[in-house]
Design a protein around this nucleic acid. Structure first.
Lengths: 111, 111
DNA sequence: GCAATATGCAACTGTTCGGTTGCATTCATT
DNA sequence: AATGAATGCAACCGAACAGTTGCATATTGC
């Protein structure tokens, strides 16, 4: 593996921000369940304009959650699960840590 | 367990939106690691105003991530891990489902 | 070549958001 | 009762955001 510089752990906040919109979350869910799709295909399932979907895709791309590849006249967007898993781990750590602390507190109070 | 009406599974988008801000994520992390705290105590660790912290706490509260209880002249804010775990599960499902689909696709292509 | 399809780009709009400042209120302590 | 500490409330501001419309560009298929 090549050594990578600038490798400090980036915050998960941008990922959460990207997922914090109903439309975008729906896009992510659709990509996850129905596989890589074109913009028009993604727009059909949505209630907003194609351009709105395009914008959301770029936001998701900026958060490292999706990437696209051109195929003919359409661009196929695909999910990228790494950041998703990072965010998931982050949440797991926080709630686990919290629950452990609460448990300790409860046992302490019960004495 | 009392039967709860209006129990349809609420979207995780509001939770993600609440976590999608650096300041709020820092507050959550601080509550998780240092336990329930007052607003002033949370403000000390932050770079913004007390009122800003207050606003963020209300946003987190709106997403069901924290709750507060008055003690004397200070209000103690506490983490609420349920929604956090919901969101975590949601992310786990999405990425797991996606990875499984990708695996199937790879095996299919390799034939 | 031409019509239809798929996307890209840019400007514009109303709303939400993060943050601040100023002032009022509540509570503890002496 | 009076001072200080902790919080609540409200108005305000600039920036970011979600979404739209209009038009340009590229690609497919007949």
């Amino acid at each position: 593996m090549p050594p990578r510089l600038h490798n400090r752990p980036r915050s998960s906040a941008p990922v959460f921000a990207a997922l914090g919109d109903e439309t975008r979350l729906a896009i992510v869910a659709q990509l996850s369940s129905r596989g890589p799709r074109s913009i028009t295909s993604l727009t059909e399932g949505s209630s907003v304009t194609r351009q709105a979907v395009t914008k959301h895709l770029h936001v998701l791309n900026g958060a490292g959650l999706v990437h696209c590849s051109r195929r003919g006249r359409e661009s196929i967007w695909e999910l990228d699960s790494h950041r998703l898993q990072d965010a998931q781990r982050y949440l797991a750590e926080i709630s686990a840590h919290w629950d452990a602390a609460i448990d300790r507190l409860r046992k302490f109070v019960e004495d």
